[in-house]
């Protein structure tokens, strides 16, 4: 373990402060896009955590939807404070991940991806049948209180935004530190060669299990934020396999280099979708798919690679001008 307070940490912290300030300037529709980016960003961090092990889930909407529906169910029994809803959503999603993890930790590659998808589709089937939760029409989410404080109508969403930013910040910093820890780094070794990791005396499966739970909790958190942002949960927007596809899309868009980049990826995705939808309402899928293809082809490591590219060039330029490149 190196420094806890590294560049990424400070970058995230600056982002946190900047978003607080920005909150006063944003128009409501932009704040809404911001909230959704934070939500999907949280899920994408969860995917990034898995991705570092070489695992990709095509079914993380399972935990996302679990978090979101937990909010709906807790509200039915009268729980209405954001912190309780968040804890509830993360806990149920995490618990589900813990249980499924015993099974899923044995799987790799495409089997892992597809088994996740199968489970998410089973949840979809269940939700589409439960009339008490509105079946496919879904169920509304009420406005919540914040540690007992109930803001006025006008300040509700700015308050929600501040809380979502804080949650996302905690998720991002926590995940970053985890990935830098020995346990976190070891799973990268699992990706390269699992058998050797076992020879070193670590349990690859256990490491994967921990990651899986963490990513489940993060996806649950994303679900909670999304449910509160939208004010409505329904199986098609929360659990269907295409929703999981969107998360993987964001992860690829952002690249797996840095947790902070995930939020940028989520924001870019959100803006792309909004504008494609506005300017080409009949072929927005084509634009979305086309952009994804371009990124895969030309930015193999996602948006984050623009930064490294730029840095490499600078280092190269520095080397040419005679200075030794700064080692990291």
């Amino acid at each position: 373990m190196t420094r806890l307070f590294d560049k990424t940490f400070w970058g995230l912290t600056i982002g946190l402060v900047a978003l607080f300030a920005l909150n006063f300037l944003l128009e409501e529709w932009m704040r809404s896009i911001g909230l959704q980016s934070l939500s999907r960003g949280c899920v994408a961090i969860g995917l990034l955590v898995l991705w570092r092990t070489g695992l990709v889930s095509f079914g993380h909407a399972l935990f996302f939807g679990f978090g979101a529906y937990t909010v709906a169910m807790l509200q039915i029994i009268g729980v209405n404070d954001i912190i309780l809803l968040l804890i509830g959503g993360c806990a149920t999603a995490g618990l589900l991940a813990l249980v499924l993890g015993f099974l899923l930790r044995q799987y790799r590659a495409i089997f892992f991806a597809l088994l996740n998808m199968a489970f998410s589709m089973i949840l979809y089937g269940v939700l589409a049948k439960v009339e008490a939760l509105g079946s496919t029409d879904g169920i509304g989410i009420n406005q919540v209180s914040f540690f007992g404080f109930v803001p006025s109508d006008d300040s509700y969403r700015p308050t929600l935004f501040i809380f979502a930013v804080i949650f996302a910040y905690i998720a991002a910093v926590g995940s970053h530190w985890y990935l830098k820890s020995t346990l976190g780094l070891m799973t990268m070794a699992v990706r390269e060669n699992e058998i050797r990791v076992e020879y070193l005396g670590y349990s690859a499966e256990k490491a994967i299990h921990i990651k899986y739970v963490l990513s489940g909790v993060l996806a649950g958190m994303g679900g909670v934020i999304m449910a509160l942002t939208i004010g409505h949960v329904d199986p098609d927007s929360m659990v269907y396999w295409t929703v999981s596809g969107d998360f993987v899309f964001i992860t690829i868009l952002a690249g797996t280099g840095n947790v902070g980049a995930t939020f940028i990826g989520a924001l870019v995705y959100e803006l792309l979708r909004t504008y494609a939808f506005e300017f080409a309402p009949e072929i927005w899928q084509l634009i979305l798919g086309g952009s994804l293809l371009l990124i895969i082809m030309f930015l193999p490591d996602g948006l984050w690679s623009i930064r490294s590219e730029w840095r490499n060039r600078r280092a190269l330029a520095a080397a040419k001008s005679g200075d030794a490149p700064a080692g990291e």
Partner: peptide, 23 residues
Amino acid sequence: RDEHIVVLATFAGFLVLEDVILL
């Protein structure tokens, strides 16, 4: 490339082709 990336690429191809059909 990574097999997951390939799946995603074909997913993107699917989205594009579906709209081509629409066109």
